[in-house]
Design a protein around this nucleic acid. Sequence first.
DNA 1: TCGCACACGTGAAAC
DNA 2: TGTTTCACGTGTGCG
Lengths: 209, 209
Amino acid sequence: MDPNGEEYQNLWETKLFFQNEELDCWTLDEAISGYYDSSSPDGAASSAASKNIVSERNRRKRLNERLFALRAVVPNISKMDRASIIKDAINYIQELQEQERGIQAEILELESGRSTGFDVFEQDLPLSVTSMREKTFVVSLTCRKRTDTMVKLCEVFESLRLKIITANVTTVSERVLKTVFIEADEDKDHLKTRIETAIAALNDPLSPM
Amino acid sequence: MDPNGEEYQNLWETKLFFQNEELDCWTLDEAISGYYDSSSPDGAASSAASKNIVSERNRRKRLNERLFALRAVVPNISKMDRASIIKDAINYIQELQEQERGIQAEILELESGRSTGFDVFEQDLPLSVTSMREKTFVVSLTCRKRTDTMVKLCEVFESLRLKIITANVTTVSERVLKTVFIEADEDKDHLKTRIETAIAALNDPLSPM
DNA sequence: TCGCACACGTGAAAC
DNA sequence: TGTTTCACGTGTGCG
């Protein structure tokens, strides 16, 4: 069912080459024939037939070139069959389509995962204020780990005059995560705004990026 | 250069249908011919020629079916030309390949961007053990917020018999972040392995995904 | 009328 | 050996 593909390819290309050679030869012959046609009695019909022949030859040549080009863009071609080339191309296209679907789904999931996951610490404002229960909030913020970063963070929270229940500072991969449990009367958004302004007051060194 | 594609399609399919019809007809005729061959004097040569004819017909039929299938998997086919079908298939394949390259580059960039940030909490093992100072570690892990997730997390850490200095559990957008300050004599990697195995002992419910 | 696209039958070449 | 694949010339139908 599957003879030697290499020889098949060579065979085919040889045939193609032969065909082209013959085509040129025939085209030349064609011109001669047309030359004869003008002087021969039944020149019209012969000329028409010859035109049809050369047109058909060019059409076959174009189709072969197309098929050759199709084989070129499809990887892992084993059999050089005309039908097999098209078959492999179909399989390859379906494979690409399926892969594209999967990859796009993955990219979608990845992006949505960022927005629904823990990316609060990666966004432009890596500050999250969550209401745990009545008057109790959890503040999480991250920033790059620099010199005096922790000190300045503590200064910020001290300056806010908040009732801090407990606070933790964790460093992971050159970043600082500070988690503070706070008891406050104010609104969640108001609290968040206050923290943001306090951090902005220290302008650049605390910029998350 | 581009006549009406619809009519072209109808033309071709009509021709194909005609061909099949004629094929069946000829196949029938063929059988009759074979029947005659057995009684005719030059039956051998005629039979061979007929075999070749029917084989060639089947080959053309297969090739047409392949081409038809190729046209089916390629969207936005305008011209129903044989050559045009292959040409459009080539363009489509190249388009898919280019798109695949771009998407894979994007996905790579997205993943690399995550790996430099805080993605420790988003990877397959969202467990981070950081050495703060001598014998003091900070363990951070995240998982999806489900029923009894916090309880099971606490059970895990209790089962490890660790000296817990302080522990916090924060929930952000349907995820749970647990940060534990631990005092331990063991190695950082050893501690991480122990926690991982303890979590794995609870098998699925704590799986981050 | 001519051009174009196709299917057909046939001989040859490769396996 | 026969089977398979190919290119070729030709006839046909449609625009």
